[in-house]
Each structure stands twice: as structure tokens, then as C-alpha cells.
Amino acid sequence: MPNTQQLEDITTQVRRDILRMVHKVNSGHPGGSLGCAEFFVALYNEIMDRKDGFDMDGIGEDLFFLSNGHISPVYYSVLARVGYFPVDELNTFRLLNSRLQGHPTTHEGLPGIRIASGSLGQGMSVALGAAQAKKLNGCKHLVYSLHGDGELQEGQNWEAIMYAAGNKVDNIISTIDLNGQQIDGSTDTVLSLGDVRAKFEAFGWIVIDIEKGNNIEAILKGMAEAKSKTGNGKPVCVLLHTVMGNGVDFMMHTHAWHGKAPNDDQLAEGLRQNAETLGDY
């Protein structure tokens, strides 16, 4: 079991992976990826109970679904760093014939991926379906999912949120990446989400805030609390307060790096701020 310092070292390396992947192909989504780096590292190294290897059905282990598929760089980096596929394959991100498509997909058979995502708002329904399958199979493991905050503007989420509570799907922990940013600006200016906690609570969910969503210890503590709330007849929502672009100072607190790659100088500066820890791919 890695300690906090080790998880932080992994996170630093994941940031380097994200920057280098996006820079190489001059496309991709670094902002949200960097903002969720600590969460992914904690989730895959500490929080989830995972089997060795990969099979689609995932019986006997926790499952994770990424709904906001555009933050594929952090997903791919962490999947590779925990051993689902060779780290060197990160070199193929967004290239022709790659398994690392712009948005995650099962179509190319990349281990670790169980659903395609990218068109927003679909992941919670899928995660709920997988959670229901776990109940049918008598599998006591949990289903985790991650969603962007702007993504909550998609109506399908609210169908799913209503369904989960109405059907007591209590083996799911859905995390909302509350970074307050989307492509066209802040979520407040584009389409205000209002009080997200109150909305989830009104729909019958248990809600847990992780105020320091870029702090490993806070994430571990908050997710442990979330896990303790499962199995009580209610779905669990985690509001993860993150900073978009976290860990690279000029990318932080802005929507400008939602879907923009750094140039050579910016890459160098970003890497300077995040010194190699595990070795670059």
C-alpha cells in the first residue's frame, strides 16, 4: 500500500505524462486531466479493490466509469502506470491505429476501459447498470464513476440521478469534478449549476464534499467516508472541488486549457514544475 508521498510522486509523473501526451499531438484536454490527477492516482492505487489483469465483466472487483471522456490523458496515464498496458503505449495517444483514441473506447480493446465516453452525460446510466448487474451477481464490490460539473447540464444525468435514488442503488459512488469551468467559460456564466449539493440531496442521494480535491490525503479521507455510506439504501455522490490545470501554474484557475495543448516552451515550463519521479515513458 503506497504512502501519501508515493502517491504524490505518482501524481507528479502523471502530470508529466499528460503534458507530454497532449503536446506531442498538439491536441487533447490537459486542464480537466490535471485537475483530476490526484483523484485518479488515489482511486486506482488506493481506493479501488481491483483484480490483477482485466476482464470486461469485472466480477469480484470494484469498477470505474469515466463519463467525461475528454480527460482521457489522465485516465490513460494512470491505467498504464498501474499496469493495465505498457507505459510506452502512451506515445501513441491520438495517433492513427492507436488503442488510445482521443476519447476512451472499448472498440480498440484497451485494457481498463469498459465503455466508450466522450459524448457527455451518458456515464452515470452505464455505471448504474453495472451496479445493478453487481447486485444480480451477488458481487459486493462497488462501482465508481466520474463526471464533469459542466456535464451535469446534460439531461440524461438527471434521469439517472432520479433512477438511482428511486431504486436504492447504494453500491455506487459518483464523483462530480467541481472545477467550475467549461469550454465557453465558467459554469456560472455558461449555465449555472446552482446548488449541486442541494440538487443531489433533493433527488435522494447522500452527498460528501471533498473541499481539497487536489490533496491526496483529503481525497483518501473523503472517499473512505463515501465508501462507509454505501449499502444504506441510497446512492452516494462526492463533490470533488478541484482546480482545473492543477500543478502547472499557468494552466490553473482558467478554462483556457480545457482543450488546448502547450507549445514547446510551455511544455518545458510545465515539466520544470513537475520533476520526473517514476521515469518518463
Binding site: A131, Q132, K134, L136, Y163
Partner: peptide
Amino acid sequence: ERFYQVGIAEANMIGLAAGLTIGGK
């Protein structure tokens, strides 16, 4: 136990169905 009434929410129904396949249903 194998029947899911999803209400008037077809988009969610399709997603739930996709998820249910993960686990062999």
C-alpha cells in the same frame, strides 16, 4: 429481480442496459 422499470426516461434506459452487460447480463 431481473426486471427494471425505468420510468419515462429512455436515454437512461439505454445506458442502464449497456451497463448491465458489464457483468454478463
